[in-house]
Design a protein around this nucleic acid. Sequence first.
RNA 1: GCGGGUGUAGCUCAGUUGGCAGAGCACAACGUUGCCAACGUUGUUGUCGAGGGUUCGAAUCCCUUCACCCGCUCCA
Length: 538
Amino acid sequence: MEMDKLVSLCKRRGFLFQSSEIYGGVNGFWDYGPLGVELKRNIKDAWWRDMVTGHDDLTKAEGAPEPYEMTGLDCTIIMHPQVWKCSGHYDLFHDYMVDCRQTNKRYRHDQVSGRWVEAKDKRIFATAGSDSDSPEEDITRQALKFFGLRNKHIEQLQWDGGITPLTDIKDFSQVLGPHAKELGTLTEPREFNLMFKTTLGALGGEEDAAFLRPETAQGIFVNFKNVLDSTRVKIPFGIAQVGKSFRNEITPRNFTFRSREFEQMEIEFFCHPDSSQKWYKYWRDRRFQWYLDMGIPEGKLILREHKPEERAHYSIGTADIEYAFPFLAEGEYGELEGISHRGDFDLRSHMLGKLDPNSEATPMEVELNEHGKPKYRGSGKDLTYRDEITNEKYTPHVIEPSAGADRATLALLCEAYTEDEAPDDKGKMKTRIVMKFHPRIAPIKAAVFPLVKRDGMPEMAKDIYRALKKQWNVFYDEKGAVGRRYRRQDEAGTPFCITVDGQSLEDQTVTIRHRDTLEQWRVKADDIVGEISKLINV
RNA sequence: GCGGGUGUAGCUCAGUUGGCAGAGCACAACGUUGCCAACGUUGUUGUCGAGGGUUCGAAUCCCUUCACCCGCUCCA
């Protein structure tokens, strides 16, 4: 399936529009149209129902170490700025970057280091980037290459001082970029903020800067104590949240896949450190199965465990659930959801101050500034948990299944898009576009048609429509040829069409037409609500 | 961020050398028909992505800019 066809159908039928389209659009922002909003809402509702409200906390779920509780939360998009400092996002997402005009490489300003060196009556600052395993060797190699010297003439390099960070250098005109061949190719350091900055208060200045959240998870951590104190939940339990997040993506691309404003469906699952590994496995497998249940075939979905070097060292495991999006190359997959074992990093960071992600100690140590104080102070609040039966007090470990609602929606749109052949009224085969959504997520569950607009057929059809409308989003249409009405519903992904015809008026039966098979069968008009209910809840 | 491509009706696209803005589909109404994009008649739809320039005249040539697609780069 070519992506263009899906994008065109999405616009034509009202699934997705470009944001602010009449003004030319904005890069990385997309709007959901009348059908799209239903589809996405159904996906979010299915997730919430399956993970939260529908969860049976009395029974041990298959694959789970023990029964557990689930609860929800809806926190604000703007939070106290300190939240993002302690979470690590401020440091990770907020950097000064320098670009190399020659190599088109980009470096973090504070991670480029270099050394003054003189040879052949020229003095330059040779550098190595953060990608370098051995800055000293790379700096030397860069210097040799620049001066056109061989290794055996290494003594011609006159070093001036030791390795210093690029941040100490004001004038870049004599700086040789980490992979550059000429001097002065690095741009001035530019602020690079992956978080959206905003201002609190109408007169707010720089000290009133706040951020739109880059993930919903932190709102759960900072409310951990509130949930414990207000609900009687006991570990193990999870807190779920659905909501918008914002990231200034460098390269928004691939339709809605990488958007700057997007919606997440996240769970923070709190458990005892000793059982955290089992819970990690449970959630990883449970979430994978959920996508299969939503209608994504096994062959297009992979569960990819991160290699140890790919994940933070304090994490016992991280796995991505990835889908073979059609815009990716053969054999490549795009992330739908990440499940990570975060240990106690978040809760302890919000207690004590941001932990040092490079700390090898157990438990991890707080990252300190040059004065030996915490780089970012924590809340100072006790976020530990006391087990009332064993009286054990500990900081819970966290398993985080973090899903993208827009990515799930996009995957299900891609998966649903089908072109097949169906006969027209003369029996000639014609290409048919049909969105084969699982009935549970289909924007419209059923359409009701009178075969023709006379003889009391519309009246009977309208009664059926009203009866169904009480429970589902259904659609009534009496205009034009019935074949055209069927095809329109195929493009909307409506799984069932109910038609009132001449026979209906005599024996009170109607036909149900199946979207995928085109099969039709008759049922009693009085049974239609139960019949549709049965068909949708398969 | 870099390189290439594209942008004309709701969708798909044509538009010659700079000379009246087009087609198919879709959509709406009416009629006929009566189960898979039907037929007939009638009708609606355009800042030609935006801004500027050249020109008597620009969808067409030039500059700037925005968006989308592809390839690099990046990707928490």
